[in-house]
Nucleic acid binder design. Structure first.
Lengths: 339, 339
DNA sequence: CTGTTAGCGCATTCAC
DNA sequence: GTGAATGCGCTAACAG
């Protein structure tokens, strides 16, 4: 239609240059007129080369949060199995900044075609992103977005909204004179994760807005072996507690403490994430509800985005994607096998 | 690898016959060994023919439940835009059995390649399915499964689990001595929908199991113009009500009644489905929570399943798919734009 | 029953 | 700068 060959159209589609301005305009006019849509699958078939991606996240123990993200990445790999993709997984210790640094430092030298990045430490992440920017290597964030970096996209949930959502649940169920006990976990050398902090901010803002601030009691889970005893003591010292809250995925620890030390079933426990341990607690009824953030979909979307970026430099307006926040209880759990 | 031509492999892959047993076995052995995976997209490209599907559901007014299902179908159409698909939409009146019958009766003559079916009336549905079975036309259910039919697949949620889920929410929040007011809607000539009945069963079973049966009050929304007054009167007659429940997508009607006639903000209203009216109520705070059943994903999955069935006779073990049950409140609503 | 040929949208290579 | 030729997985049409 534009009087040019397939080769020229291909050069235009991929912005490879070596095309005269006149032909470019002619072809783009036709493309618009016929509503051309790039076909990523036939493209992949004829594409000879493969891609090499690096995936770097905190260690993903079986049944834990990050392994769901990885599972999502694997599903995308399956979905796009017509494309030859090699993945390198580089895990770091999310409680050890120097472990993160040494892993991140090694990544730019790998000359990957793209990186999927589960960030924890802001400084290390920014330094890695800067190096990747310098080499023109695209990267995508999962689980959290880091301000100041230039990712192709990020897939996470609005953590403050999570906190507010949690507040809404409490508001709906809190009885006259009862209290909310919020457990923070304290771990070796760990400044608390930014996700957890954002959740707490969302929660406290919500409680304040609804006049419930004085119902909130804060407590700390020590990293020591006698944590369970201390948790039990905290509950004993606060018999008015109706809700126990844990803002990370370790709700199962509180569940065991209640179960073993308190033998109470009047306390409602709300936690985060469908980890294997948490699922078990939900089934047994020792955890009432979990807030979840579609980790599989995060991983899936991240890899898909890298592929579409590399095969076709598709740009979108807002590349900060916020995924839904799900509430999972015993009754809807069986249907929450993601995707 | 099996010493046969592409044509023979193609015949085997699609079970088109005209292949000797020996070659079939040889090829299938190789297929298994190399982990062959059918590529639906390149298949579609070389496929000359298009497909013609019929979609038949209750009328899908803008912003209503069924329009989300349709939206999901449209998304799948987009996703598989490399395949030429023509869709015929045939809507019927879900409160008028004879409307359904006349629409369903016309479908077998259309000689479609496949049908997506949103069932309401059991008898009409079974009769249509029988006709389609006779013609070898595949069909997929959305929103509900009808026992006795032979669909390629069905995509719905477990409605009893929905009811139990709802019960769980009530159990968590119900205060001492407070009541639950369940509204049933009564409409012209309408036996109540089987989905609504299943939800009610799930709810009542749950309440009974948790010793809350005596907290439940049942009421009826008449189909008349003075419905709002009657609803208000019901609330006035039951001042102990803490929760109001509507098991269909018309929760917004109760919301207006409370808002206009009662001016109370102490009643928590829980409904179903992210319809436009319900979304508005959620944002305004007149509805506390909605249970949702991924209507878009239902539609999307249904069309995708028909395509994969026709392009490749992929069989799966259990083709009764139960989608997740989501809880949406004001705080997570912004992130629930499906898919 | 089976193989060959042509062609789908796409990417690459190479000659001009 | 540009177009022609080749090949990817796949299906269709046809010859034998």
């Amino acid at each position: 239609m534009a009087g040019v060959s397939a080769g020229t159209v291909d050069r235009i589609l991929h912005g490879r240059g070596n095309v005269s301005e006149a032909k470019r305009q002619a072809v783009e006019a036709v493309l618009g007129k016929v509503g051309y849509k790039f076909n990523i699958h036939t493209s992949a078939v004829s594409l000879k080369r493969g891609y090499h991606f690096v995936v770097t996240t905190p260690e993903a123990g079986e049944g834990e949060y990050w392994s769901s993200v990885i599972a999502g990445i694997r599903e995308a790999l399956e979905e796009y199995s017509d494309i030859q993709i090699q993945l390198d997984y580089l895990f770091y210790d999310q409680f050890d900044e120097s472990s993160c640094r040494s892993v991140f430092d090694s990544i730019p030298q790998l000359e990957a075609d793209g990186v999927i990045l589960g960030p924890t430490f802001r400084r290390e992440t920014l330094s890695l992103c800067e190096a990747l920017d310098g080499k023109g290597i695209p990267y995508v964030f999962v689980d959290a977005n880091i301000e100041g970096a230039n990712p192709v996209a990020s897939y996470s949930v609005d953590q403050e909204a999570c906190g507010a959502f949690l507040g809404r649940m409490l508001l709906a169920g809190l009885h006259e004179g009862k209290k909310i006990l919020l457990f923070r976990s304290e771990r070796r050398g760990d400044e608390r994760s930014s996700n957890t902090l954002a959740r707490e901010k969302g929660l406290t803002d919500f409680l304040k807005a609804n006049g419930l601030s004085d119902r909130l009691i804060r407590s700390t889970i020590p990293p020591t072996d006698d944590a369970e005893n201390i948790i039990v003591d905290t509950f004993r010292a606060n018999p008015q507690v109706q809700y126990a809250i844990v803002l990370n995925s370790r709700g199962n620890i509180i569940a065991s403490a209640i179960q073993n030390g308190l033998k109470s079933d009047s306390i409602q426990l709300i936690g985060f994430d469908l980890t294997r341990d948490n699922i078990k607690c939900l089934e047994e009824g020792t955890i009432t509800a979990l807030l979840c953030q579609r980790p599989q979909l995060q991983g899936f979307s991240a890899l898909r985005r890298l592929i579409s970026w590399l095969l076709y430099r598709s740009r979108e307006e807002d590349e900060r994607h916020f995924l839904p926040i799900d509430l999972v209880v015993k009754e809807n759990l069986p249907y929450y096998r993601e995707m």
